[in-house]
Structure formats: C-alpha cells, structure tokens
Simulated scan of single mutants.
Amino acid sequence: MNAALRLLTVLGGSILLTAAAGWIVDLLLRRADARDPGTPLWHSLRRCRPALQIVLLAALLRAAYHQTAWRPLQEHQAAVGRALSLALIGAGAWLIVGVASAVVESGYARYATGTRDPARVRRVRTQVTLIMRVVTAVVAVVAVAAMLLTFPSFRALGTSVLASAGIIGIVAGVAAQSTLGNLFAGFQIAFGDMVRIGDTVVVAGEWGVVEDITLTFLAVRTWDERRITMPVSYFTTRPFENWSRGGVQMTGTVFLHCDHAAPVDLIREKVHEILNHCREWDGRGWDVAVTETTPSTMVVRAIVTAKDADDLWTVRCAVREQLIAWLSEKHPEALPRLVLAPTPGTEPAAGDPGGRWTKPGP
C-alpha cells in the first residue's frame, strides 16, 4: 500500500469513525430526551456534539498518523504530533466545560420550575452563574498549562519557576491584592445571599436592577438603560439598599407642598379615588397626612403600596400627576403662591382680602 493510500485510509477512516460516533451519541441523547422530555439535560448535552467529535478525531489521528508513511509527515512528525495534541487538549477542555454547563443548567432549570419563591430562584441563578465561571476559568488554566507542557522549552522553564515559586507567590499576592479581594468578595456575594441577579438596588445614589455578577465586578442596569459597573468588593465593604430583600412588596411616599388653605379631607378622598383606578396599586394600604408646615406652605404626604419597585414608581407618578391636575382645576387656591408685600400704588386683588397677592392700582 503506497503512502497516499495509507494517508487517505487513516484520514478517511478517522473521519468516518468520528461521524459515526457523533451520530450514535446524538441518537441516544434524542431517544433519552423523547422518553423524558421534562429533563433538559439531554437536549443540553446535544450541544456538546461538535466538541466530542473534535476530541475523537484528534485522538484517532494522534494515534494513527505514524502509520501513514507519508514523507512530509515523517519529516515534521514532532510538529504534527504537537499540533494534534494541542487540538486534543483544547477540544477536551471545550467538552468538559460544555458537559459541566449542561449539567448545572439542567439542575437550575429543574429547581426553578419546582420553586415558587422568586428570591430563591435568583439566589440559585447567581450561584450557578459564578460556579460556571469558576469551572470555566479552572479548566482553561489547566488546559493552557497542559498545552505549554507539550513544548520542551516550557518544561525547563517550569522547573525554574517552581524553584522560585515562593518568591513569585509573595510578589503576586502583593500585586494582586485588589484582584484577590474582589475574587473572594464574589464568592461571598454568591453564597452569602447579599445581592442576587434581578435584585432592585440603590448604590451610589443610583436606582437599578442587578443585571450581571462575575467574580470581580457587578453590573447594575439603571431605569434609563445605563449600566453601572462596580467592583464586587463595594457590596461587601459599603452599605447599599436592596429593595428585593425580605420580599418585593414596597411602600412609597408622595409629597406635595400646598397652601395652608388646602382642603386636606378632599385631598384624602381624591387620593383614594386615584388609587382605586390605578392597576398598579396592590390595595395593601394608603394614607394621607400633613407631615410638616412652613410659614408659607404645608407638606401633604400620601403613602401608597405596590407589589414591586416598578409598580410603586408608576403608582407614585400617577398619584402626583393626577393630584396636581385636580388641585389646579378644582382648588387652585390650594397650590402654593408667592407672597408679595404690598407696595405703594397697589391694592389687594379681588378675592384676596389678606393681601397675599397684589395687582397694580389704577
């Protein structure tokens, strides 16, 4: 058998075996998925088929390329073997990460389906996300190290590095102090249940929803679609507001500055009417009271409730807008006015015996 025929046999046979193995594995996963459609694991594992086929193909070629007796391969035997080894290591890492992701995501999906508590679901989602990133980072580091060890020059370098590992470790620890602090803070957030993906928080005076958590930073999406990226150590060293802790139901306030002559009882009735026509109000409670007075105005506070932060914002805006419009139309005297002292040549306006508002005289 000549060299060209051997090359075609080895290459073609490896490709056929790889394709057959991939088809068989995919067929088994499809049958398992059909028998148990409620388990997303089998469908997720089917996405690992390309990585599995590359691993099989690289392993078969790595084991059989010596038998080709093809001169170019024999002349570059070491380089070809190293390239196949690198492909095998890279595809193996890809396969491990894919399988781990499928298993973890399947477990999370089953947990989320069977749990009615949104806070627990967000907590598990945060932990799953961070666990997968840790697994991916560890596998990537091990794969890169294994690739480097295939080069003889790096083996010698590795020996010298191990000899001075103590000094390098001290230097790296000092240089990466901030990074390591964020890393441990990420684990503390994930498993300490301080903040979770989907929580509504107020940090640095900004209100938003936690959109992403990594081992080193946390992203908050604000109401105007901005993204605030902060180190995770911020949430372990400084106080912040988490509106999703202890349930998502919330109570909010609406403040209005009114004239002392404002009809508080009518305002109270109007607030109740506005809330009864507001779909976002959850009906848990409401109140209207005068909380403060100044020489020129009094402060009327309306308390409203809603099932979450988004609905609370809508309720507060609706009460504020409709109440001001109603006062402007029905009771304009209830709105604050600028008090001016009478000046020579002016007289009190009609309907203003106290002389708070003036108009020019004749």
Rank of each mutant, 00 (worst) to 15 (best):
A175V: 15
G198Q: 03
T214W: 04
V161I: 14
R221P: 05
A137V: 12
T251Q: 14
N242L: 00
W223S: 09
F235A: 00
W223V: 10
G252T: 03
V174F: 14
G247V: 06
R226T: 09
R238A: 13
Q177P: 00
I228D: 01
G158A: 13
R227S: 01
N242S: 07
E206W: 07
A185M: 04
E211Y: 08
L157D: 10
I189H: 01
M147C: 12
V209D: 06
G173Y: 05
V209E: 12
A137R: 06
M194P: 04
A146Q: 04
L183F: 15
S160K: 11
T200N: 02
V254W: 06
G181V: 03
T150C: 12
S233G: 08
A175K: 10
V210D: 00
R245Q: 10
G192F: 09
I167E: 12
A140W: 01
V201M: 02
A140C: 12
D193I: 05
E225N: 14
A145C: 09
P239I: 04
V232R: 02
V195I: 15
V141G: 08
T136S: 14
Q188L: 09
M230K: 10
R226F: 07
I189E: 00
V202I: 12
S164F: 13
F154L: 10
P152Q: 07
T200Y: 00
R221L: 09
S244Q: 01
T236P: 07
F184M: 11
M250L: 10
V202L: 03
Q249N: 15
G169W: 07
V174P: 07
A204F: 08
P231T: 03
I170Q: 13
P231V: 05
F187S: 01
F154H: 07
V141P: 03
D199N: 05
S153D: 12
W243C: 06
A163G: 12
F184D: 03
T236K: 08
W243T: 01
R196S: 14
D193N: 14
V139R: 00
G208I: 03
M250Y: 02
L157K: 10
G181I: 01
R227N: 04
L215I: 10
S164N: 14
R221S: 11
S164Q: 15
S153E: 11
G192W: 11
V161D: 04
T253L: 14
L180H: 09
V171T: 11
S233K: 08
L215C: 04
N242H: 04
R245P: 04
A190Q: 04
A140H: 03
V201I: 11
G169T: 11
V174R: 11
F154D: 05
L215S: 06
E225K: 14
I213K: 03
R196M: 12
D199L: 00
T179L: 13
F187N: 01
Y234W: 10
M147D: 04
V142K: 02
W223N: 08
A163H: 12
G252S: 07
M194Q: 11
S233V: 03
M230L: 15
V138Q: 03
F154A: 11
T200S: 00
A219N: 09
E211W: 06
I170P: 05
A172E: 03
V209N: 03
G186Q: 02
R155V: 14
M250I: 13
F151I: 10
Q249M: 11
G205R: 06
W243K: 02
R227V: 15
T214K: 05
V138D: 12
Q249Y: 08
P231A: 09
L162Y: 13
R227I: 15
A146V: 06
N242I: 02
M194G: 09
